[in-house]
Design a protein around this nucleic acid. Structure first.
Lengths: 109, 109
DNA sequence: GCCCACTATTCGGTGTTGCTAGGTACCAGT
DNA sequence: ACTGGTACCTAGCAACACCGAATAGTGGGC
């Protein structure tokens, strides 16, 4: 059921996008396309934009408006120092969770 | 500020509890204590109970009321066939997510 | 007898999150 | 004109975990 993924993405999608931005600056549409290509087929378009706005409000990313040849201007996001710190924290939390779940999976059944 | 872990647990705590129940029947208080012992120190007591009620409403678990020597009667939950199916789905979804994140972590930075 | 700690469950209200389902804007090809 | 691809935004919704408090039973210390 797709519902499982929806709930599981809460809290992780945030980190996923930051991780993408840590590799290279990108804009919303690009990020969405990238996610779709990686198998996250059901991630809604609006979700990514809302998430980027939140990231900006928290001061995790910098924004640059870049005119596009096709369509409206792009908003290119790039990770700043605070964002990198946040990403580190994210990976720590993720590692903790992933370890416990791996143990559970082995132990159970 | 919502903690990272709180948001990340959304959707996964559900599976964690089912995984615990797949090993052996248990009641709410016991599950909470188990989680605390495993490092999930900040999981609220009420959270587990609410989660168990949801699982029951979805028909994933069976409930048995067992009198306790200490305190009020326990509600002992055990996984049924539907619950095991759901757990399988959970692990599939989790695996998918964990794989993508592992790739991202390697690739990024 | 009275209070406290521990066991055990329940409930209403809150904040964060991703999804739904639209809309705006710009340009190229037909 | 019209369609399709690019690119962004928004309001309202449902699900989830947290918080704080209440309820209830048992046993031990004073």
């Amino acid at each position: 059921m797709a519902t499982l993924m929806t709930e599981m993405l809460k809290g992780t999608l945030d980190g996923i996008v930051l991780a993408i931005l840590s590799a290279r600056p990108a804009h919303g549409y690009e990020i969405t396309a990238w996610l779709r290509g990686r198998g996250f087929t059901d991630i809604a378009e609006g979700t990514v934009y809302a998430l980027l706005v939140r990231a900006e409000q928290r001061g995790l990313v910098e924004v640059a408006k870049v005119p596009s040849e096709k369509g409206p201007p792009r908003k290119v996001y790039s990770l700043n120092a605070r964002g990198r710190d946040h990403l580190d924290e994210f990976w720590k939390t993720w590692s903790f969770l992933a370890e416990r779940l791996q143990q559970l999976r082995k132990g159970g059944k």
